[in-house]
């Protein structure tokens, strides 16, 4: 594996569209559920064990060659909010574009052809990780980290939160990020044997409901 490729893929500056998404933080801030660093930490913790675990498991399974079409359908079933399904596919398409430029491969081209409007981002992330020479654990770490780093970055902008506090939150969550990534790799391996039904389906009702509320706003900073 190339450690540098992993850093590249996890870098917020990798041009794959993440900067315009708040991971539900914009809706939570507006609803008064996030008012500072302590709330942000709990918010991120909730994301880690729900959306983060599910995304990382999908990504790990994709690295382990579970078929993309099945994983994409499994991601749909785990994402009841239509707004979040749209966001996940947009981000998947954007990641695919950046990755095809960075790590050209026939497999990426094939997935881009099969999903011209995008597959779910975590599934694409897994396929991309493999194209970049990375393993299931790398993809899972990347997905789990993204599940909290995007929200933390968004809250810095939304609340003018001290960026050092936000970094502190992410650093404190690091051991949990590692644990969730390990669980996700296990789950991905399980899916190879038992099929996608064995993948985690941890849900977060407020993230789903908040995403629908957010999609209805006429005025918003973030796409989701």
């Amino acid at each position: 594996m190339s450690r540098a490729a992993l850093l590249m893929l996890a870098d917020g500056r990798f041009p794959a569209g993440g900067h315009a998404h708040s991971g539900g933080a914009e809706a939570a801030v507006k609803a008064g559920r996030i008012t500072g660093a302590a709330d942000l930490e709990e918010f991120c913790r909730g994301r880690l064990h729900t959306a983060g675990l599910v995304a990382a498991s999908l990504a790990a399974a994709a690295v382990l060659r579970v078929p993309v079409r099945e994983l994409d359908a499994a991601a749909d079933a785990r994402t009841p909010s239509p707004a979040l399904r749209v966001a996940a596919r947009k981000l998947g398409r954007q990641l695919m574009r950046a990755a095809r430029a960075a790590w050209p491969s026939q497999e990426l081209d094939a997935v881009a052809r099969e999903f011209p409007k995008g597959a779910h981002q975590p599934v694409v992330l897994g396929v991309v990780a493999r194209a970049a020479g990375l393993g299931a654990s790398d993809a899972a770490h990347c997905a789990v980290y993204e599940s909290v780093s995007g929200a933390a970055g968004a809250v810095v902008r939304l609340l003018s939160l001290d960026p050092f506090d936000a970094s502190g939150v992410l650093a404190r969550l690091a051991p949990e990020v590692d644990r969730v990534a390990d669980l996700a790799v296990e789950a991905g391996r399980g899916a190879v044997v038992e099929g996608v039904g064995a993948l985690p389906a941890a849900s977060a009702p407020l993230l789903e409901i908040g995403a629908e509320v957010h999609a209805g706003w006429g005025v918003r900073l973030f796409a989701s």
Partner: peptide, 17 residues
């Protein structure tokens, strides 16, 4: 799947869940 209560993965009672 929803998990909550003591022993559930942390964050279940927080602003995301």
């Amino acid at each position: 799947e929803l998990s909550c209560g003591p022993g559930a993965p942390s964050g279940w009672d927080g602003p995301a869940v």
